[in-house]
Design a protein around this nucleic acid. Structure first.
Length: 136
RNA sequence: AACAGCAGUUGUUCCGUCGCUGCUCCGAAAGGAGGAGAGGAAAGUCCGGGCAACACAGAGCACCGUGCUUCCUAACAGGAAGGGGUCUUGCAAAGGGCCACGGCAAGUGCCACAGAAAACAAACCGCCUGCACGCAGGUAAGGGUGAAAACGCGAGGUAAGAGCUCACGACGCCGCGCAGUGAUGCCGGUGAUGGUAAACCCCACGGGUUGAAAAACCAAAUAAACCGAGGCCUGAGGGCUGCUCGCCCGACUCGGAGGGUAGGUCGAUUGAGCCGGCCGGCAACGGUCGGACUAGAUAAAUGACGGAACUCGACAGAACCCGGCUUACAGACUGCUGUUUUUU
RNA sequence: GGCCCCGUAGCUCAACUGAAUAGAGCAUUUGACUACGGAUCAAAAGGUUACAGGUUUGAAUCCUGUCGGGGUCA
């Protein structure tokens, strides 16, 4: 399932790579597997791969409490998503065993909008930390 | 030309690479190609509709909303024109701003403190008359209190006074009066007198309730209930009986249907819409002809990187759809009005 | 997306059928008591009643509009 040929080197981010089901979200939060990398709080859950189509999925949330304007929340979600899209295949997907599938939940707990390069650094840090969790 | 006010328009642009959501085409699929992709406020949710489900003979009550007139409109608490009031500029003429602008003469309530008294009534200092030295009667001019004191002001009148009478003025109602569609203005008659209805309330008009998390369609899994068949070779068990047969019920097995959860589809994007011309209208707006073709997501699509330009980019992100209102907003442009200065 | 409620001293609340000094407890400051501190007693300070308009003689209270906070409906 991991991209091997040149054609699949496109760094896509499709609908099926997002968590859309409320049940999945509740299960993820009930497990309470989480850690902080400021300005993020990250929940994670690894499950065995059941069929070949299933992929790693993520969910991005920016609370309305900290960012009142929808414009600011959209901006942050787009930046986070772009950072994940650019990096997850290189440093995350290739390091995960083929029989595991992940659900990730990024919660932005910062109070102000950070520039893209900082957000990208933090996302990379989170993904690297997750690979260590899987191996241990 | 500058400044101020009001009204209106606009509110970064271009190229490349990667990526996101629909649509069309190609492809067995993976995927590829083409083209589309937030606003004037998308916001607040303050009003009005469309649409949908439920309810509903008719009428009334309660509750809520609206409240000068005429018109516009699908409708409105919106808009246009007008009337009235109020503030302001001005010598005036005139202009500008603002106004929740039906009714306290239908009833009830309230009006702190002060004051004699806050409206039923009554009289502190006064004024006048009588008795005779503090009491009785009359009075509401004047004083004082208060936000507000029995309509204002002048004359008559009187012991002193009083809308008690009269003129003028303020106010309500009436007139087939005159002008106007009307509010209203003018004229004439008549009548009452504190304020308060964003106090209860009265009058007129309007409103059924609930909202796309509405509604409609398709429909896994699972539990119990329902229907049909089996329930025997062997065997759950129970009833009709003392026993056997038989019949019935029935655990259980198989199948079905129903409602309907997860999930999916639809609602859902072409519309009381937009642009331009002509006609009607003071205007809001209406009619007609022509043209363009537009976001439709569903945990929810516009981003990242590199480059270029300028005035260096405000407020801010669709979630069923429209019409308004309110609020936020860097800069640029247009029109009108006023003031100042310069030139002709 | 729809609906509902609430903003009063630093904190928790009164006063919400208009009436003039917006009150109470805790906390703060000062003083007394004590060898010192706590507790107690006495006193003081602290408010644009979220903001802006309006009605009224008079508004925390009534009306309208903003801003902020909270709740509820799958």
């Amino acid at each position: 399932m991991q991209p091997e040929d040149a054609k699949n080197q496109h760094l896509t981010f499709k609908k099926k790579e997002r968590i859309c089901s409320k049940l999945t979200i509740e299960r993820l939060l009930e497990k309470k597997q989480k850690f902080f990398v400021y300005p993020f709080k990250c929940y994670y859950d690894f499950t065995p791969r059941t069929d070949a189509d299933s992929v790693h999925r993520i969910l991005i949330t920016v609370p309305k409490r900290n960012f009142k304007h929808a414009v600011d929340r959209n901006r942050l979600k787009r930046l986070i998503r772009e950072a994940y899209r650019q990096n997850h295949r290189q440093i995350f997907d290739n390091q995960i065993p083929d029989n595991l599938r992940s659900d990730l939940f990024f919660l932005y707990v910062g109070k102000e909008i950070l520039p893209y390069n900082l957000i990208e650094d933090k996302i990379i840090e989170i993904l690297q930390r997750l690979t260590k969790v899987v191996r241990s």
